[in-house]
Write a protein that binds this DNA or RNA. Sequence first.
DNA 1: ATACGTGCAAATCCTTTGCAAGGAT
DNA 2: ATCCTTGCAAAGGATTTGCACGTAT
Lengths: 146, 146
Amino acid sequence: MESRIDRIKKQLSGASYKLTPQREATVRVLLENEEDHLSAEDVFLLVREISPDIGLATVYRTLELLNELNVVDKIQFGDGVSRYDLRQEGAAHFHHHLVCIECGAVDEIQEDLLEDVEAIVETKWNFIIKDHRLTFHGICYRCQEK
Amino acid sequence: MESRIDRIKKQLSGASYKLTPQREATVRVLLENEEDHLSAEDVFLLVREISPDIGLATVYRTLELLNELNVVDKIQFGDGVSRYDLRQEGAAHFHHHLVCIECGAVDEIQEDLLEDVEAIVETKWNFIIKDHRLTFHGICYRCQEK
DNA sequence: ATACGTGCAAATCCTTTGCAAGGAT
DNA sequence: ATCCTTGCAAAGGATTTGCACGTAT
């Protein structure tokens, strides 16, 4: 069976980019931390554990590249840094986020939930939707228990 | 009748802040450009036309203050700058945005549309929603005509 | 040989902060 | 006199860029 990383390799070579060791290490870190919403700095520190000589600029360049290929989505929650989120394979739409204003945790919602809303927006505003970003800010179940 | 700016004045004084000439000029610029999504730099350039001696830092401090008082919402569309959007009076929720990937235009949707989705999120994920951000990326009606 | 990718350092951009001075109460 | 606010300049943090050096074809 073809692995996730194999398919990402193909996407890279399909766009005539090489899968260098640095790029592979970066992709592996993203795969291994799929639940998190890593900043470039976060990725850099993790990649350096595998590939100690990598430079921060290379990580930025790789993340930018993966973003252009739609392998990752670049998101901002308003804390001043960009975060990079692996796009689910086969997902028609970007998933949603729950940001806790108490503890800062970011949880994901994989369900679509927006089908009806999108239908309304497309007809009523005559807007062709290609992607969306939906984030809820509030209090997560963990902080409610405290 | 009480004007919009009067009510904003009251919000400021209610939180024991003064409405200085610089702050008033900044608020006026926001009111006069309510349709746009101005960056701090944009606001600064416009305020300087009214109040030429204002400093950029003052504009940043005022926008930060207005954000804390929920007079404006600070938003990021991913182009590297924060933008400031006047909150609709009496609006329970933040409005939504349509970002055109062709021409860059940002249109607003004032309708809520998310009531059903929020009900699902609150019960199914046990998350208390305080605010939300919803942005659609796609092609606006103007660019479709071209 | 040629083109691509890298690490490093410098540069850039946006935003925040320190501080002395101005203004209101 | 005290407290808040300001403008300016400097500092800060995140990201990008220039460049000489590899490395693979």
